[in-house]
Amino acid sequence: MVLATGGSLSLAGTAAAASATGPEGQTITVSKVDGLDPAGETITVHGEGYDLTKGIYVVVCVNNGAGQQPTPCLGGADMEGGGGASAWISSNPPSYGEGLATPFEEVGGKGSFDVQLSVAAGDEFTDCLDPAQAPNGCVVGTRADHTRTADRSADVLLPITFASAGSGADGGGASGTDADTPSPSSTTTAAAGAGAGGASDLAQTGASIMPAALAGLALLGGGAAAVAVRRRRTEETNRP
C-alpha cells in the first residue's frame, strides 16, 4: 500500500525508528526494525534525497552483504502495488508502468516518498528466519527497480529482526541474523558499492512463476479434480 505523498511522516522521534544513509546522500527512516511480529506487521518507510530519474523498489529482502543486491524479496517485485509487501516508486517509469508506479514527491530537486509495508518473516519466496535461505537475515529499504537491476547506488538498507515465536511483536529476542549481529542504531550508514550485483534486466526476486502460469495451473488442477469425481462416480455405479 502506497501512502499519499503530500507530506513526510514524523518517524525519527519514535523510540523504535531507525535511519540509514545511502551512497548518494539518500536517507530512509523506518518506523520499526526490531522485534517485528513474524506473522506479519505493518511498518512505515520515509525516504528523501533520491534521484528523480531513477526508479526504486521499497522492499524487504534477504541481506546478501554490502555491495550485493538484496534478493530474493518478500512478496517479489510488486509492480501492481496490490500486495503490500513492496512498493514501486518512479517518476519516469516505462510506458507499462504508468499508473502502476507511484511518482516521487519532489522536494528541493530530489525525490521523497512515504510508504507502508506489510512485513512478515517469510512467504513462498523466502524465509528470513531460515539460516539456509537467509544466513545474514533480511533488510528493509530501497534498491533500484528492474530497469536498473545492477545499479547499487539506490541501495539504502537497514537490518530487521523478528520477535521470538509466541512472544508477540514487542517480545524481542529472535532475529533473522546471527545472535551476535548488533541491532542497527538510530542512525546507520548502509555500505553499498556502485556497479556490483546482478546484471539481468529483470528484478531478481523469488517470483519464478508468472500469473498466467499460475492461472493455468489452477485450471489444470480444477480439470484433474473433475476427472477424479467422474471416475469415482463411474466406479460406484459399476460396483456390485
Rank of each mutant, 00 (worst) to 15 (best):
A192E: 13
R232T: 09
A132F: 03
G166P: 09
T205N: 12
A218T: 14
T188I: 05
A132Y: 04
A203I: 00
G172Y: 04
T205D: 15
S208R: 13
R233G: 06
P182L: 01
A218R: 14
S200N: 10
G168I: 09
G141M: 04
A192Y: 04
A225M: 12
A225T: 10
S175L: 00
V229Q: 05
A150G: 15
A179C: 10
M210K: 11
C128G: 01
G168H: 11
A132W: 03
L219I: 14
T181E: 09
T177L: 08
A203Y: 04
S183P: 06
G198M: 07
P159K: 06
P184S: 04
G193A: 14
S153I: 04
G141F: 04
T189N: 09
R143D: 04
G166S: 09
T187C: 02
P131W: 06
D180H: 03
R148H: 15
A194R: 13
D130L: 08
S208D: 15
G197R: 00
L129R: 05
D170Y: 11
G216F: 07
A165W: 08
Q133D: 12
G216D: 13
D201F: 11
L129N: 00
V140Q: 01
R233P: 04
L158H: 06
G222L: 14
G193F: 13
S200I: 05
T142Y: 10
V156P: 01
G168P: 06
G216K: 09
N136V: 00
T161W: 01
S153E: 07
T181N: 06
V227N: 03
A225V: 13
A203W: 00
A213K: 11
D145C: 04
D130Y: 07
G223L: 15
L158T: 02
G216S: 12
A154M: 15
R231M: 05
L158S: 02
L202S: 14
L217W: 09
V156E: 02
R230F: 07
G172H: 03
S183L: 15
I160S: 01
G166V: 10
P211G: 01
M210E: 14
L214D: 11
D151G: 05
G172R: 06
T187K: 11
D145Q: 08
A190G: 02
G221S: 15
A215L: 10
S185Y: 05
G216W: 06
I209G: 03
D151C: 09
L220H: 05
M210H: 12
A225Y: 08
A165H: 13
A144R: 05
T147R: 10
S164F: 03
R148G: 07
A144H: 02
D178K: 14
R232P: 02
S167F: 07
S185M: 06
S208F: 13
P184C: 02
P184G: 03
A228G: 08
L202H: 10
A212F: 06
R152I: 02
D145F: 04
A132D: 14
R233T: 07
G166N: 09
A207V: 15
G171W: 12
L217A: 15
P211C: 00
R230S: 10
A203S: 07
S208E: 14
A228T: 10
R143P: 01
G173Y: 11
A132V: 08
A191S: 06
D180N: 13
V140P: 00
T205K: 05
L220Y: 08
